[in-house]
Design a protein around this nucleic acid. Structure first.
Lengths: 99, 99
DNA sequence: TCTGCGTATCGAGATATAACGATATTACTA
DNA sequence: TAGTAATATCGTTATATCTCGATACGCAGA
């Protein structure tokens, strides 16, 4: 893995490495949802949610479409879900087995 | 996934979301190596490499042991390797234009 | 104890990210 | 075209991260 590839991979990971953004991925696992629905699901204000959605869209993790006044987001990069799975797995192990 | 779990998961991901740190994981996939070996493998200076190793150790991704003057690091959290695999997979798809 | 090698830490400056309230934009409807 | 709901963006402040040179620490051999 050369520097350039590593940098790009890091960019993608960074786009997931945030509590709100992880929760967004979780909220979208079942399919597309509007910004308002997502904001409610993750328990954050509209402005912040919109910003985080934009970040993930920029990095190619999400895509969006407008439908009237609302905008729906969905997961474009399925690897995001796999990454979420890995971290989930890690956290379960820490919580139950060790220490 | 509640806020607390999401925050912890984000912490772990953040510890991987850096070009050097991803390369470190790759360098350690084959087993433990000393700081000097790792620094050379990723092409970075000693101080920076040591700092990044420390970050990953703090977050439970690596562990280390001292052997004389040298310190060896290895991967403690195998999920780090899986995450790396996910991102690799993502980048390959993007690069070749498949879908 | 002194020396040298390998590793860790410190402090500073530059850059990036987070969070927030306020405001702008867009689209629908009366 | 005025009003309203949904979403996006702006401007600011606070905080975190990255990088680097310098330096301190830990260990082993002479």
């Amino acid at each position: 893995m050369d520097k350039k590839l590593a940098s790009h991979a890091a960019e993608v990971l960074k786009a997931l490495a945030h509590p709100i953004r992880l929760q967004v991925v979780e909220a979208l696992e079942g399919g597309e949802r509007s910004v308002g629905e997502i904001a409610e699901a993750v328990g954050e204000k509209q402005a912040i949610t919109s910003q985080q959605l934009n970040i993930m869209k920029d990095k190619g993790i999400l895509k969006s479409r407008r439908e009237g006044a609302r905008v729906f987001y969905w997961i474009e990069n399925e690897n995001a879900i796999r990454v979420l799975g890995c971290v989930h797995n890690h956290c379960r192990k820490k919580g139950k087995g060790r220490r």
